[in-house]
Computed example of a mutant assay.
Amino acid sequence: MSPFSSAHRVLSGAALGIAASATLAFAAPAAAGPWPDHAIQMVVPFPAGSSPDTLARMIADPLSKKLAQPVIVENKPGAGGNIGTRYASKAKPDGYTILMTINGPMVTAPALYKNLGYTPDTDLAPITLVGTSPNVLVVPNDSPAKSVQEFVALAKAKPGALNYGTVGPGSSSHLGMAMLEHQAGISLQQIPYTGFPQIITSIISGDIQAGFMVPGIAMPQVNAHKARALAITSLEPSKLLPGLPTMTSQGYPGFESISWDAMYAPAGTPADILELLNQAITQILGQPDIERKMAALYFTPAPSTPEQLRELVHKETGRWGAVIQRLHLSLD
């Protein structure tokens, strides 16, 4: 069992306790007057149609009903999510700006950029983890590679000739492939995109030869026989992706790269507002219809306390920081 899997069990267990008491605890913040009294902006640092965008919109509607105010999703894509994350970190900490982001801007970007423009640990306040999903290694449907071993053999036969798509430097789609390059002794060219919908389009057209992708975007095209999935990046098989082998089972032991989405607010947002948001989102993630919708995207709901999310980020930062250092990656 991986450290991430252990952390997921702890988060899920704690979330059950929160959910059980959330209905009683749901109340207006005590520190300031009535909140919210106007619309809340939910920043998504990726384009429309991406998995963070889809999850954000999935949560925004029931959250607006709980808060009795509109929750408006605003996409601010670019730089692997760093632009929108930076924007949210500089917003007024009054509870009217929240952020749905992924692990890249929070975990790996600080190790890759010296001048990021924000410090995750001090400029953003954690609200809750939202969901987790393994990534999927995808190639064009007409690719000669039908397994990871065959893909590696193809890359070795054409050193430097194959390229792959990412949602930006430092993202899990980038570092996952960087790990495979390191472990397999191959060299590929990275092509950054603004989001996974653009990556799968390029894989289908043959403009790029591979990509580590979130399954919510990749699998509809795989199931339509427009692309081919070779492996998943969890250490163990996924119930949501039956029949897909792991990278570990195909000759790369310990290969793990999990995508997760989480909700944040600008640092300094009143604690009672953060608590109310945590309780409301935890309730939403426990709704059967939301669980079904997330499962359709191959995500598992994983609500947490703010502190547990902070601890997860610290653990992931240490783990991926070591990978970045070993691979001598820098984007400055």
Rank of each mutant, 00 (worst) to 15 (best):
H182Q: 08
H182K: 06
H182G: 09
Q183A: 14
Q183C: 00
A184V: 07
A184I: 11
A184M: 07
A184Q: 11
G185F: 09
I186M: 03
I186G: 02
I186V: 15
I186S: 00
S187G: 09
S187T: 15
S187F: 10
L188Q: 03
Q189T: 14
Q190I: 05
Q190G: 00
P192Y: 03
P192F: 05
P192T: 10
Y193H: 15
Y193R: 11
Y193N: 14
T194Y: 10
G195C: 08
G195E: 08
G195N: 07
F196G: 10
F196Y: 09
Q198F: 14
Q198H: 15
Q198S: 15
I199S: 11
I199Y: 00
I200S: 08
I200A: 05
T201C: 00
S202E: 10
I203E: 10
I203Y: 07
I203N: 03
I204T: 10
I204G: 01
S205E: 13
S205F: 01
G206Y: 07
G206T: 09
G206A: 05
D207I: 09
D207N: 09
I208N: 05
Q209C: 05
Q209M: 12
G211K: 09
G211Y: 10
G211Q: 05
F212N: 13
F212C: 12
F212P: 04
M213A: 02
M213T: 13
V214I: 13
P215R: 03
P215H: 08
P215T: 08
G216N: 12
I217G: 02
A218R: 01
A218Q: 02
A218L: 10
A218E: 07
A218H: 04
M219H: 09
M219A: 14
P220V: 07
Q221N: 12
V222L: 03
N223R: 11
N223M: 10
A224R: 08
A224T: 09
A224L: 01
A224K: 04
H225W: 00
H225Y: 00
H225T: 01
H225R: 11
K226P: 00
K226A: 04
K226H: 02
A227Y: 06
A227M: 00
A229M: 04
A229R: 08
A229G: 06
L230M: 12
L230E: 13
A231Q: 06
A231C: 05
A231P: 11
I232Y: 09
T233I: 05
S234E: 11
L235A: 15
L235S: 14
L235C: 06
L235M: 13
L235H: 09
P237V: 03
S238C: 03
S238A: 13
K239F: 01
K239W: 04
K239P: 10
K239L: 09
L240N: 12
L241F: 04
L241G: 06
L241A: 12
L241Q: 07
P242L: 03
G243N: 08
G243D: 06
G243H: 03
L244V: 03
L244D: 07
P245D: 02
T246H: 06
T246E: 01
M247V: 05
M247L: 12
T248P: 01
T248G: 13
T248C: 14
T248L: 02
